[in-house]
Design a protein around this nucleic acid. Structure first.
Lengths: 333, 333
DNA sequence: CTGTTAGCGCCTTCAG
DNA sequence: CTGAAGGCGCTAACAG
């Protein structure tokens, strides 16, 4: 099964390779009607398929985009990926998805691999552990946009949620419903991941605004497998909270597990709000109040920004885009 | 920002391009210690990155695999993709994921695109709508393995669940718990998608085995957005079922929505078992009994089969691999 | 041990 | 309108 090439088609159609190439690129002005038909027929007959690798080598564009997510286990990542893929597919681009697993080393490998593969651009949920690499990419004008997390002091276009506001929306909702002992729990902040920090800050800001004293014991951060223990600490304390803000979907699920295990009632024993929409929110019992991210918009914006960079369309706009979350009121608060 | 190439490195290090190439391919026997160091230094200094596209053109291998899922909305797809990605990543392969959205035309486009991109192989959840294309690929010895669905009369290696057994496990569980009026609901079978057919068949087989009459009204199939209506028909009938087998995760969620909306109690009013494990199964109230697919094993097997094909290792083994499901007993039945 | 030489398959001037 | 020629960046003989 020898691969058939443009040369074979040319021979078969009795024209030169360049004519076939013209045909492939739809430059029909450059050939007679008859030639065109002959070429078309030969392509059909030989079942010829152009080799995109060869074309890419020549044209310096692979029509492929890399997407590196920090952690694919978040439903947010999955949703964003889906939306990005849809959008790029419309434009004839493929995407390669990589999961850095929150490990800067993996992230570095992926970035280098993707660049070696000559992808036309990268959308990345940065771990934050490769600042000098980011800078280098930026300097070499490689198209890149950050998603979900901001990295300080780097002028790279970034699309994130207004995390402060997300937390405040949740706290407002709690306070409106009469809760004052409110905890927030989130996954580990040892690497200063911006959305987590910002959500905690938003939590504090909101409490202050409502003149509620911030109780440090009500702020819990831990790796996913330590979350159960953190919750235990929260609830066996002298003054357990009456409400919990789960700062992302993974935390939310851990919270729900804990609550079920200890036979507590939502919202009577404990009210909960989760940031990130989860597929079961609407039919869980009780239904779950959540703060949802505008994933589609975020994805589309990121795609747009990246596309502009690829096409070298200059934009004088600001570099960090914060999109607005929405409170979806349901039954858990 | 000119791209720097192997030639630049060669010049900088005062050696020939081929020596640099040798170095890149770790054939250090072919050069002196000093040369090696010089090359290494130059690469470092120039921040050189090999161009994989050029290499691929020469070597006829892109170290990239295409994965086309029929419908990415199924959690099963996501799980499989994750496992496939992990496995291939170990071997230095990238994967490109495509979502055919259950549309044969999209599937066709993707297959052609991936082949044009010279991927080394494809794993595909076939829609079933492109038989002649499948055959053609098979004939040209292009590495390919099917997943999740069987296609008749095509000798392509296929990894699927033992769907008959999956349904039987569920029915056995229902019957053991005293249920006899058991319904099955699944997504549309107009395109003869094998797992759906097989699950229905397994359902029938099990009922027969238990000497329960098969009631056609208890077998419902519909597109996702028509599922609600199908459930309505099921429950407003003269003799509503006491138990429902949800044949996949999407159906399960619709069932749970319906049940919640109508304030029914699980399992008192209606028992339910779902095929496919869902993330909230363990902490839903009640916890959900499910039939889980061995996703990791399935993915690894598919990867292995594909890898063998890529390496042209002949296997005389059978062509359809049916892996075993597991019943996870919880509280919904 | 190192350099020279041909391509891989395609695209793109540039003559004819 | 069509064809010849060169080159994208890298690899792989094959000489030296």
């Amino acid at each position: 099964m020898k691969k058939i090439t443009i040369g074979d088609v040319a021979k078969h159609a009795n024209v030169s390779k360049s004519t076939v190439s013209q045909y492939l690129n739809k430059r029909y002005e450059y050939m007679s009607e008859r030639t065109r038909e002959r070429v078309a027929a030969s392509i059909e007959e030989l079942d010829y398929r152009p080799n995109i690798v060869a074309r890419s080598l020549k044209q310096k564009s692979t029509f492929t985009i890399g997407v590196i997510v920090a952690n694919i286990l978040h439903s947010f990542s999955t949703q964003i990926i889906r939306a990005i893929e849809n959008k790029f597919h419309e434009q004839g681009f493929h995407i390669i998805v990589c999961n850095a697993d929150d490990e800067p080393d993996k992230e570095k490998d992926y970035i280098e691999m993707l660049m070696a593969k000559q992808v036309d651009g990268i959308i990345i949920f940065p771990t934050g552990g490769n600042v000098s690499l980011y800078e280098q990419m930026k300097k070499s004008a490689f198209p890149i946009v950050f998603m979900d997390r901001t990295i300080e002091d780097i002028a790279i276009e970034t699309v994130v949620l207004d995390n402060d506001r997300a937390a405040q929306l949740a706290i407002d909702q709690f306070v409106e419903n009469g809760y004052r002992k409110i905890a927030i729990v989130t996954t580990s902040i040892i690497r200063n991941i911006s959305p987590r920090l910002e959500r905690i800050q938003g939590y504090k800001n909101a409490l202050e605004r409502h003149q509620i004293q911030v109780n440090p014991a009500y702020i819990k951060t831990a790796e996913p497998d330590m979350l159960y223990q953190s919750l235990e600490e929260l609830f066996v304390s002298e003054e357990p909270p009456q409400a919990i803000l789960a700062a992302n979907d993974i935390v939310l699920m851990e919270v729900l597990k804990y609550i079920k295990k200890h036979d507590m009632k939502i919202p009577e024993d404990i009210a909960v709000i989760g940031i990130d929409e989860v597929p079961f929110a609407s039919f869980y019992t009780p239904s779950l109040t959540t703060i949802s991210q505008p994933t589609i918009e975020m994805a589309h914006l990121a795609v747009k920004l990246l596309t502009n960079q690829i096409n070298k369309e200059e934009t004088g706009k600001p570099s960090v885009y914060r999109l607005q979350p929405t409170l979806i009121q349901r039954g858990s608060c």
